[in-house]
Design a protein around this nucleic acid. Sequence first.
DNA 1: TATTGTTATACTCTATAACTATA
DNA 2: TATAGTTATAGAGTATAACAATA
Lengths: 147, 147
Amino acid sequence: MPQPATPPTAAPTPVQLMDQLARAAAAYYRNFAAMAAEHGLTLMQGKTLSLLREPRPMRTLADLLACDASNVTGIVDRLEARGLVRREVAPADRRIKNVLLTEEGEETVRRIRADMLSGLTGLDRLSDEDRHAFQALLTRVFPEPTA
Amino acid sequence: MPQPATPPTAAPTPVQLMDQLARAAAAYYRNFAAMAAEHGLTLMQGKTLSLLREPRPMRTLADLLACDASNVTGIVDRLEARGLVRREVAPADRRIKNVLLTEEGEETVRRIRADMLSGLTGLDRLSDEDRHAFQALLTRVFPEPTA
DNA sequence: TATTGTTATACTCTATAACTATA
DNA sequence: TATAGTTATAGAGTATAACAATA
């Protein structure tokens, strides 16, 4: 018997979709933590490095990491001790310290990102239309912060 | 000038899509941690509770939480001290301790899940087709473990 | 022998509060 | 006064290694 034009499986309920988002988010971070660990980094250290495509003040890092500013001191301390980042006082406002990647830090970020991408083999197999649709759906469910 | 039939924005590259997945996963856990915190729970405590729809051995929890078994002892200790879970020795294999929700634990999980769902307003606004497409894309990019 | 769970240890992450330096 | 960053502190999460109980 030919299948009908409608999808062969029923559409998931919002609750079922939420559960699947939970599994996907867990899988993403399980991957990321494993890739960071291959470079001797914790999850938070890896996240911090990957946020430093451009130099950022400590305060901004705290906002992006969704943690208190006092935590960032220790995280950046450890990254700095390993030579992956350094602090620079901002000339315009000497209260601010910008954190930026060293060359070794940049190389580490490149490797982690490459490892992540090769782990997400499903992404490369998506068509242009599928990637476009995926992006649109993610944006609708997780909108960018308005501010 | 009329727009072409193709989508108005270009399809994202796999790398761009990976970055968006990173933002989405971060947003998901920022939400989840905030909802858990409203009940005085940490992220890991909230995750543990939400994994207990059915009783599970400590070892299974360690696998699902992607952490060492020794950590689960402390996490479950704290949840048990607050009356949200309890341990039960499995009769068939007395080495195994099954962890299960108390009634208060079940109520807490219900509230956290309801809070999450009301926070993900975008999910309710998706059409049946969109939810089905989203599910299919998530499954392709984050396949269920084969084992 | 192998597996489950716990304990002990050391390190990292976490929020809170108090502090310094700068604006 | 207000903001950026640090320090001190206590509690929670983390992996490793060693252990007891059970299979």
